[in-house]
């Protein structure tokens, strides 16, 4: 297995968080107890446009769901994946085809092949990381629950 740390560069993570306006979440579930739902809910709260990609859902979090990335009729900045690793290479290809700027693979969605495919096409890639946690670490309020953000800074910044 490729070392996931290759796709966990803090600078890339922060660039993706800041450049993204629209995120397509592949495998977004309407079950509020699923991790994907937590992430989708959180992303919407923090101002991202969330587009569910899940053939088994009509709509999630009030947003129309599309069967595949190729069906989305608008530009997508980030493709965030909650699917088993074998599904990732095909999703990565679709992400390249629709012109997404970045591919994000959630915890345990480890696919060196899919990651390399997207990276070679020029996409920013993050793997085995959670979009919600990384947003909370750098831009949000992860620190209020005593988590180690790893951030050491004397700059005064606002939190969203």
């Amino acid at each position: 297995m490729a070392e996931p740390a290759t796709y966990q560069d803090p600078a890339v993570v922060q660039r993706v968080l800041r450049r993204t306006k629209t995120v397509a979440i592949v495998g977004l579930s309407s079950n509020p107890l699923r991790a994907s739902h937590f992430v989708g809910f959180y992303a919407m709260r923090h101002g991202y446009r969330v587009i569910p990609v899940n053939p088994r859902e009509e709509a999630v979090l009030g947003q129309r769901s599309y069967p595949t990335l190729a069906d989305i009729p608008e530009p997508v900045d980030l493709v965030d994946v909650f699917r088993a690793p074998p599904a990732v290479p095909a999703i990565a290809k679709d992400a390249v085809t629709i012109g997404a700027g970045a591919l994000w693979l959630q915890f345990e969605v480890i696919s060196p092949e899919g990651a390399a495919l997207a990276a070679e096409a020029g996409l920013d890639v993050v793997m085995d990381r959670c979009f919600k946690i990384e947003h909370a670490r750098y831009l949000g309020r992860m620190h209020v629950l005593g988590f180690n953000t790893g951030v050491v800074s004397a700059r005064r910044v606002g939190f969203s």
Partner: peptide, 8 residues
């Protein structure tokens, strides 16, 4: 947007 926070 503030600059990156040097978490690396």
């Amino acid at each position: 947007m503030s600059e990156d926070l040097h978490a690396d």
